[in-house]
Design a protein around this nucleic acid. Structure first.
Lengths: 185, 185
DNA sequence: CCGGGTTATGCAACTAGTTGCACAATAGAC
DNA sequence: GTCTATTGTGCAACTAGTTGCATAACCCGG
């Protein structure tokens, strides 16, 4: 339901992007909260063009392997505005790590620790990346409406990663099979 | 990839449950971080039985509309333990509300406020529900390994909902089109 | 000029999840 | 006794996302 709107947003933020341009930006910024592969993006670009929401910039390169840049048409912008304002129920979460912890409560925590540590490291790295972006793109004093909204979205990413690093640290501390726990305490 | 393991966990937590029993518990507890509909659950119960991970308790009720209770077989418990300990990469997030905020940065925030308020209310309610569960099921002083792990999972839910209520409150405060904002400030 | 790497576009098949509906048994209302 | 609501099971079709692979142009070294 949302991939076309993610693409419209990305294409409005930076017009005349190609499929590969968009793919690269889905790997960096937009993809942090709406990931997509290049195959999905190409498929969706085709649909959006067929619906009249975007169009390929005329460059008379008809063939495959040739760069093809798109821009958003008024109908596409209108659709994005409509979707943004429309009421939407939050999708139910699915988090495999929480499920694994709950499973571990019945079948035991053996073997879990290594992957908890790995995830902790991944979340720490993601957090560092977000903080880097914040330092680079949102220096203090900036306050255009657009910048404030984008900063708010980034803050969500930062706070979520902060939560996960804390939570995983706590989980690791509470594992019963830590072999180096002092006996006497 | 994880629905069968969610079902195995639920079925180990409370054996000889039927499809509908499981569905109800997916609506309350397990479903908070791994939701599933009854259709998914029935389909998966069939697969798990075919694979020899669970079996229907013998009750010689052959027909449709008759309650059918399942239990986990040793092979199912082993599979759950294997899965719990196996390394798994975190799945990429998809959050429509963050995407909408980012879209609003380019097409404007008109019409967004109502749904932000609605989501805030939903998250507040979910948070209240989690806190109710915590008070009921995890009184202070409890410290079996199983209870600590389950409490940890619940804490994740509480902290995530706390984050969202804060974040949405901040987002609402920052919307540019608040009509009752004093002029002079 | 041709072989291999990079950039770029795209199809096809598969997997997981959702939506809509159907059907059987049972319990209580009238 | 039969009508209706509730409980319980389940199939089928659809939608979204993933995985694997194919193809074409271009660029650079030899």
């Amino acid at each position: 339901m949302s991939l076309p709107h993610a693409i419209l947003t990305a294409l409005l933020e930076r017009p005349s992007s190609s499929g590969l341009d968009l793919t690269r930006r889905f790997d960096r910024s937009i993809g942090y909260f709406w990931s997509a592969t290049h195959q999905q993006i190409y498929r969706e670009l085709g649909r959006l063009e067929a619906e009249g929401h975007i169009r390929a910039l005329p460059a008379e390169q008809p063939a495959r392997g040739q760069k093809k840049a798109y821009e958003v048409l008024p109908a596409g912008r209108a659709e994005l505005a409509r979707w943004t304002a429309a009421a939407q129920d939050p999708k139910p979460h699915r988090d495999a790590m929480l499920l694994r912890l709950r499973a571990a409560a019945v079948v035991g925590t053996a073997g879990l620790e290594a992957d908890l540590r790995r995830h902790l490291e991944l979340h720490r790295r993601q957090l560092a990346e977000y903080e880097e972006i914040e330092k680079r793109d949102f220096p203090p004093g900036e306050d255009s409406a657009q910048a404030r909204l984008q900063h708010l979205v980034l803050r969500a990413g930062i706070e979520l990663e902060t939560f996960w690093t804390h939570w995983l640290t706590e989980a690791l501390a509470g594992l019963p099979d830590a072999e180096d726990r002092p006996r006497g305490s």
